[in-house]
Design a protein around this nucleic acid. Structure first.
Lengths: 160, 160
DNA sequence: GCAATTTAGTTGACACATCAAGTTAAAATA
DNA sequence: TATTTTAACTTGATGTGTCAACTAAATTGC
């Protein structure tokens, strides 16, 4: 009795939190975000969300809210607000699509292009450093493992 | 000229976003969070933050705000507010430490214990499923890779 | 013992995340 | 063509994440 009570006192007996993938991912995510935010601050004044929007708008012909949402997984509501503020800040130009009046085609202003180019080298350097920091085999396993975990988040129950 | 302009149009030419570790981590983190939130909702009414606090309080003799912060990496301000609301909700008991009047020792109420026990099986099952989903060797490599990435987030510049 | 520093916790401000409800336009279907 | 359904975007509510300023108690160094 005492044993089983004891046993259930920890989430996983003898497994420290920093071995748990969920905690590790949460922590790493927070640190990656704050690093990216810092790099962007040091290389212009784009916020991380503005940066993410520009990455898509920059690479996409006739970018729209929904294309940005599809690529980045950012919530539609947030994109709406972010784009709105970027238009106000003279970073994006919006034009209602003539074929479909619901959608709004977005283009970067020259100001946005300049800011994007300013941040790009540091951001790209970081990405390639990340890619090179892991031996290729390890990197592949990481991506595979992330795929596996990603698939598991779709499950609503866990078979034994 | 056209080529170099073109080249710089993408963050990493020919690398789709879902190969970039930073995006993968961000997405996985969001999905893990929403899955955990859903499981907790289906097995009681604890929020994810309340759950995280209870995991520590449950496993720690004389838990305090700062011990929770140290273990979980949750922001001190958030812990303060979360603990406050949990005391109001009759989930935690607070007692000023007699040896150090700054710190507050936290204990679970029986209500919290019951809710924790109610959520525990599903949460533990999820964790062990995560652990089993990856072959041990892959799991070790994943943890190693996460360690490496974690260390890289400490860098303020990226050597070539 | 006393000033300076550090540590524990609180509070406020603000950006970001998630969800749900609403508007308008397009597409499907009857 | 009229009705229904779906899609694109907006807006509001609420919870979470991050940061900085603040109070009070303990510790450190004279």
């Amino acid at each position: 009795m005492a044993d089983s009570a004891n046993y259930s006192e920890q989430l996983q007996p003898d497994v420290p939190l920093n071995r748990l993938v969920t905690y590790r991912i949460a922590r790493l995510h927070a640190k990656l975000n704050s690093q990216a935010t810092r790099i962007l601050k040091e290389n212009g004044k784009l916020s991380l969300m503005q940066w993410r929007v520009l990455v898509i708008v920059n690479a996409t012909e006739n970018a729209t809210h929904s294309k940005i949402a599809a690529q980045t997984q950012i919530d539609g509501g947030q994109i709406s607000r972010c784009v709105k503020s970027m238009i106000a800040a003279d970073l994006l130009l919006a034009e209602v699509d003539q074929a479909d009046h619901r959608q709004i085609n977005l283009r970067m202003t020259s100001k946005a292009k300049a800011m994007f180019q300013q941040a790009l080298p540091a951001m790209r350097k970081r990405q390639s450093y990340f890619a090179k920091a892991l031996p290729e085999e390890q990197h592949d396993i990481l991506i595979t493992a992330l795929d596996t975990l990603d698939a598991m988040t779709e499950l609503s129950s866990f078979p034994d």
